[in-house]
Amino acid sequence: MAELAERQPGQGYTPIDEAKRQRLLELVRGRAMARPTDLAEDEVMVWPSLVVVEAVSAVVFLLGLIVLSVLVNAPLTAHANPNQTPNPSKAPWYFLNLQELLLHMNAGLAGVIIPTIALVGIAAIPYIDRSPLGVGILGTSAKGRKIIAFTTVYTIIVQTVMVVLDEASDRQQFGLGAVLKDAGMPEIVYGQMLPSLIILGAIGVLMAMVQGIFRPTRREMIIALFTGFVVTYVMLTIFGTSFRGEGQELTMPWNLPLEHH
């Protein structure tokens, strides 16, 4: 190019220097200078990019559901009989966590107050944790994911110990309830206040440990609390479905009556 620019007008044609001669080697497909689309760099068209994902997952799921439904029949036991109580009588599995809770404390506390507080607490999460940090990242951060793992292990151990210990003391709040009962305290003390304190204590210990070990942000502390809730829900459901036999005694899953398998 410089050669051409330096060429004076009127000068004749200069033969091309063979050593500098350019050859066409290849055509490379590149992005056009003017984009013929109004899609931003990180955007895709919903048709087809999203619609295909939805359609495929719907078809795969539906096929799985049909296969399951062909292979496994929904249960239909004997005609309802109000005079014949099955032992054990169990709520649907997703309420068995409440039924498990019910064994250990006052029915109103276990069946109504605690689930209500849990649901209101969950609904309130976005009004407590308002920082936009960590949106779109599973577990917020490496620390967040460690907190999830820590809380899961903590909750599994604490739940198992509490259920087994309480069972060993005839569901008298580790025997403390029996002591208070014998001391002539009213039901509200040993059936409601004592279990509430035990639950708050278990949550408090979790929060103190997470605080001490991880120095969490508010978001990360809420991750610990939410994980504690989810693991508790799952653990109590497992206890209720698989480890409660006749008279709601703790049993191994293979000793359960057949319809509860």
């Binding site: 249960p75 239909l76 036991t77 004997a78 005609h79 309802a80 009989n81 109000p82 014949q84 109580t85 099955p86 009588s89 169990k90 709520a91 649907p92 309420f95 409440l98 039924q99 019910l102 029915a107 276990a110 069946g111 109504v112 319809e259």
Partner: peptide, 15 residues
């Protein structure tokens, strides 16, 4: 309206 449903609902409504 089988035994499973009747008694599950008995437990549930008692809660």
């Amino acid at each position: 309206w089988d035994q499973l449903s009747f008694w599950a609902v008995t437990v549930g409504t008692a809660i």
